[in-house]
Simulated assay, not measured.
Amino acid sequence: MISQNETDIEQLLESLKLSLPLVQRLFPIDVMFALADKEKFIYYLPGTELDIRVQEGMPVPPSGGIRKALETGEEVSANIPKEIYGWPFKSSSIPIHGEGGEITGVFTIGISLSNQETLSYAANTLATTSEEISMTSEEIAGTATDLANTVSELKVLGQKVVEELHKTDEILEFITKVADNSNLLGLNAAIEAAHAAEHGRGFGIVAQEIRKMSVSSAASAKEIAGILERIKMNITRMDATLLDCLGQSERQAAATEEITASMQQLAASAVEIEKIARLI
């Protein structure tokens, strides 16, 4: 509340005309000032951008903060949206009282909320973006974890395949022995067939076929052994690759968890920025 004799309004007006431009320059944000008596505006200092287009001599509006301050004798504050004058601002109207307590006028200050609006918008955008990135990071982390689990399962399966391939060594060794024995048997049969001369001709043919079969079996067993050896080598390489993939997946999961934590901190900071913006 400002106490002022009605006859001293002119003196107050002259003082404000001298001081308010200086005061305005001290504000870090855009401000405007207005002084009105009970009926009309008698002084108006617009801001750099903030301007409600008031002129001295214009009547006080029948509604609004200035009229309410004149009627109630109390300070009236309100946030004026951008849609009304083109700039959002906070208006505070302080009634001026004479020595007898009567209201002789109203002093009004308007403080631009453009920075607050921009800051609030940026904070909301930051919070939303942080939340989206955090959700995406959590999905990536979950996928990386699933991938790591899958790679681990493949690694176990690869080890089992190698174990099963080792069992085939015994089978191939048995086939090789059978081939060798068949070859020896065919050779002995051929010798006996030669001793029997004409009577052993049919037996000799059988012995020859047995030797051919044994040689073919031995060659096939050797070829199969080579194939299985190459399979073992490829599985060993695959196992090393899977191990590397497992390490990368684990690092990716850890990295995305760190990103998620950082985004959560960023979102918390955005909330604090929003609170600061509302302090104006």
Results as ranks from 00 to 15, higher is better:
S3G: 05
Q4E: 03
Q11K: 10
E14T: 02
P21Q: 06
V23G: 02
I29V: 15
V31N: 03
V31P: 03
V31W: 01
Y43Q: 07
T48M: 12
R53M: 11
R53H: 15
G64K: 06
G64S: 08
G64P: 05
K68Y: 01
L70A: 09
L70M: 10
A78P: 00
I80P: 06
W87T: 09
G100W: 08
G101V: 04
E102W: 06
T104R: 11
G105Q: 05
V106K: 04
F107A: 05
I109M: 14
S114D: 12
S114C: 02
L119H: 05
L119Y: 04
Y121Q: 11
A123C: 01
I133G: 02
I133H: 02
S134Q: 12
M135P: 00
E139Y: 07
I140L: 13
T143N: 15
T143V: 09
A144C: 06
A144Q: 03
N149F: 04
K155I: 06
Q159D: 15
K160L: 10
E164C: 00
L165F: 07
K177N: 10
L185C: 07
L185W: 07
E192F: 13
V206W: 03
M213N: 07
S217Y: 06
A219S: 14
A221H: 09
I224Y: 10
M233L: 10
R237M: 10
D239H: 14
T241H: 08
A253I: 00
E258F: 03
I259W: 10
M263R: 13
M263Q: 14
Q265K: 15
A267T: 10
A268D: 09
S269G: 08
E274D: 12
K275D: 12
A277V: 03
R278K: 14
